[in-house]
Nucleic acid binder design. Structure first.
Lengths: 367, 367
DNA sequence: CTGAAAGCGCTTACAG
DNA sequence: CTGAAAGCGCTTACAG
């Protein structure tokens, strides 16, 4: 058989090690995999030789015989631009990747157009044995990926999933907790009319946020409207104008992403609205940009890296048929900055709080 | 041999197809791979059966016999936070991924701490035959990855590399062109004192930008300082203050990233500096955020997705031993927004230009 | 044009 | 504890 010519040094195999150690390939395999079947001295000798010759398993060979690829797949159905401007994804991938690579598992990444294309990718990966499992992000309402992985028998977990979905394990993404904290913060400042510029309603987490938002408002005796968008800055600007010019303008607006919050801030300022004097603004996801604009934006910070790591850990357990690891992700945390303050002419209900920045305090009003 | 139990439907192999077609496995392989050695009717029959049973090649088996993994690797040496706030990476990955997946090549992604860790990842991927080639990003001055891939014989290309590096093909990232365009824009507006808040000097592209920046200034009879940073907003704020409070304050500042530009804008505004009335600000990389802050930021937009796609195409050609594809990436483009205007008391040297936004035109000054 | 067979580099029951 | 061997699912010269 003719192999394509390979430049560079030849890569050693277990046969080479077996020969040098004077044992069979089987023994080498047992030794290298830490399995019983070789004496301690032999094992040590084999490991030393493997180390010396710089042996690494040929993953294709291992995958073929062990029916394991040693890789997990992540297909993302978001256009490049969204991906680029949502720090969420980069952090999530970092978390996933760190956890996987600490277990020597590789991450296969594919960026596709929509959920349908994602199902195609998942199907092919599984058919080709490219992956041992998959991570599902951005769960949709009636998501086709859930029945698919169940049909295929593909081990999968839902990252940041809002709630139980068939037999596929999910891990909360802090949406409920985060929305509650933001509303609570605003209510404490004295706001009773709080609107929200939301993301796309096709996402299950958007719906969850909407439910929790409504509940939190009702529980606090507050009220507000929700406008859904496509996450674009143009839509955020439009929604902000619409809300501020409406018959019952809010004293605070919550945005579902940092980009929309910044866009909304600019829109409000251009309309001559003082932030936070006349309008408080809060962003759901925190990011560096929230601390850089003026006024800096109050935001809900989530441990997104943690979500990724948790999901990856869980997926590996699922693949290995081990018990699920405990949920260990830090809860969302409200970062109060300069963009939120008591509403005009109102006193904060439970103790006024100074916000962190000078710019903010000058805008604070007495009740 | 006992395989781990596989839930879900059994995945068909070429043996299944051969049996159903009444031919040998070899013929099936030839037919499926579009090679000579089977008659047209047989080929069609085989393809129909493969389609019908939903056959996909077991990539591990194919990799083992063909000595090809069908995957390329990308190791990124940047902390999660940087990754998250640099739209550059997400766009680059999108471009790479789109090109690779159109050729049925998978992308393996690993995020590591530093370049040394990257060399470890590359070495292991290659030793394990996990990848057929690798993409190198963020070339450093004296980058250890270049001699490594040469030593290993690992096919590799440098993405956005500033210039020729040994035997490893590189693809320009528009740094020189982009810097030139920004300086040219500012010079045309009448600026003669232009500073730059640069990124880390360890990157080869930072050095290239610095060289081109100096040359462009000199060529235009202008002058300016360069301050290097770690890309953090804190460093950008500090550098901005330092430059504005110096003995020869600039009338324009160019930032090496959008986050730094926004931070610099806020810092200047908090010092009471009017942008663009007293100070023009330009960002090297464009992003949605540049259009959302006020004043909106003039920026140099690059076809980052194109860089990724180009590099991926080239890498595949290298692996396949085919001729290099032609360079087809759109050149950087200056997007003039509201943050740049003629300097105080100066007339634009070659014809005044109205900037695109109302906010900007109100800030324009007559000479 | 087609088939039988060897081989890729591992893992893993099965005998000794 | 150890060795010889089969097998994972492909690809590819080699005979017919």
């Amino acid at each position: 058989m003719v192999r394509r010519q390979e430049p560079g040094p030849r890569r050693p195999t277990i046969a080479d090690i077996a020969q040098r150690a004077g044992v069979s390939k089987g023994s080498v395999s047992y030794a290298l995999n830490g399995r019983p079947g070789v004496s301690e001295p032999t094992r040590r000798r084999i490991l030393a030789i493997a180390e010396e010759v710089g042996w690494h398993p040929n993953r294709a060979a291992r995958a073929l015989s062990a029916a394991r690829s040693g890789a997990c797949g992540l297909a993302l159905a978001r256009p490049a631009r969204t991906l680029a401007y949502e720090p969420f994804f980069a952090e999530l991938i970092s978390g996933i990747e760190a956890e996987l690579s600490s277990r020597q598992v590789a991450l296969m990444l594919q960026i596709v157009e929509d959920v349908e294309a994602e199902t195609v990718a998942l199907r092919r990966w599984w058919a080709e044995r490219r992956v041992d499992g998959a991570l599902l992000v951005d769960l949709r309402v009636e998501d086709p990926r859930v029945p698919l992985v169940e049909e295929l028998g593909l081990p999968a977990v839902i990252v940041g999933g809002p709630g139980p979905t068939g037999s596929v394990p999910f891990f909360p993404g802090g949406d409920a907790n985060g929305v509650s904290q933001i509303v609570q913060h605003l209510v404490r400042l004295g706001h009773r009319r709080i609107d929200r510029v939301a993301g796309s309603p096709e996402f299950a987490h958007t719906q969850l946020r909407t439910e929790v938002f409504a509940g939190a408002l009702a529980g606090a005796g507050a009220s507000g409207n929700v406008v859904t968008t496509d996450y674009s800055s143009a839509a955020a600007v439009e929604a902000t104008r619409q809300l501020l010019l409406g018959s019952a303008p809010p004293t605070a607006i919550v945005y579902d992403s940092d980009l929309m919050a910044v866009a909304g801030l600019s829109a409000a300022q251009e309309m001559g609205t003082d932030v936070p004097g006349e309008l408080s603004i809060a962003s759901f996801d925190d990011s560096l940009i929230c601390g850089v604009v003026r006024p800096s934006l109050t935001a809900c910070a989530r441990d997104v890296v943690g979500y990724g790591a948790q999901a990856a850990r869980a997926l590996i357990s699922l693949i290995e048929d081990e018990p699920m690891p405990p949920y260990a992700v830090e809860p969302p945390r409200l970062v109060a900055r300069a963009s939120t303050a008591p509403p005009p002419g109102a006193s904060a209900s439970r103790g006024r709080r100074r916000t962190q920045h000078v710019v903010a305090s000058t805008a604070e009003q007495s009740g």
